[in-house]
Amino acid sequence: MDSKQNILIKFGDRVREIRKEKGLSQEELAHKADLHRTYIGMIERAEKNITLINIEKIANALEVNIKELLE
């Protein structure tokens, strides 16, 4: 597995983990982040290379620091 794919998997897994800890559905997270539900699913499945702007939107919607999404 190349490093690009690996980081996408780790990021997607972390988003899913925090989202579930917060008791949010993908749809609820998408609404709070002003993103489409299918986009959240694609991030969690490592199918999208997300932008910094959208990382910030997701962090804000999850009420965590960006750093927490990258750990």
Rank of each mutant, 00 (worst) to 15 (best):
F11Y: 14
A61G: 03
I53V: 11
T51C: 07
K22Q: 07
K4I: 14
N6Q: 15
L69Y: 05
K22C: 02
K57C: 05
G41P: 09
R19N: 06
L62A: 04
E71M: 10
K4F: 13
K57A: 06
E63C: 01
E21Y: 05
D34W: 08
L35H: 05
L70W: 02
I53M: 09
E17K: 13
V15F: 03
A30V: 00
E17A: 13
R16W: 06
A46S: 14
S3T: 13
K20G: 01
N54I: 05
F11W: 09
L70R: 01
I9L: 03
L24G: 09
A33F: 10
I9A: 00
A30I: 00
N54C: 02
T51N: 04
A61H: 07
S3Q: 14
I7D: 12
E28G: 03
E21W: 05
E56D: 14
I55R: 08
K22A: 04
I9K: 00
K32Q: 13
T51L: 09
K48S: 14
N6M: 14
N60G: 04
K32C: 06
I18W: 12
D2S: 14
V64K: 02
E68H: 02
E71F: 10
S25V: 10
K32H: 10
I66F: 07
I18R: 09
E71R: 11
K32N: 12
G41H: 09
K4R: 14
E47D: 07
L52Y: 11
A30F: 00
D2G: 15
K20N: 11
I43H: 06
E44N: 09
L24S: 07
E56F: 10
G12D: 07
L35R: 02
R45C: 11
G41T: 08
G23R: 06
M42H: 15
E63R: 00
G23M: 05
I50N: 03
L35V: 03
K57G: 02
A33R: 08
L8M: 15
E47S: 03
L24K: 10
H31D: 13
I53S: 01
I66S: 08
A33G: 01
Q26S: 07
L35M: 14
R45D: 11
T51P: 04
D13Q: 13
R19F: 10
G23I: 03
L69K: 02
L8W: 02
E28P: 05
K48G: 03
E21G: 00
E63S: 11
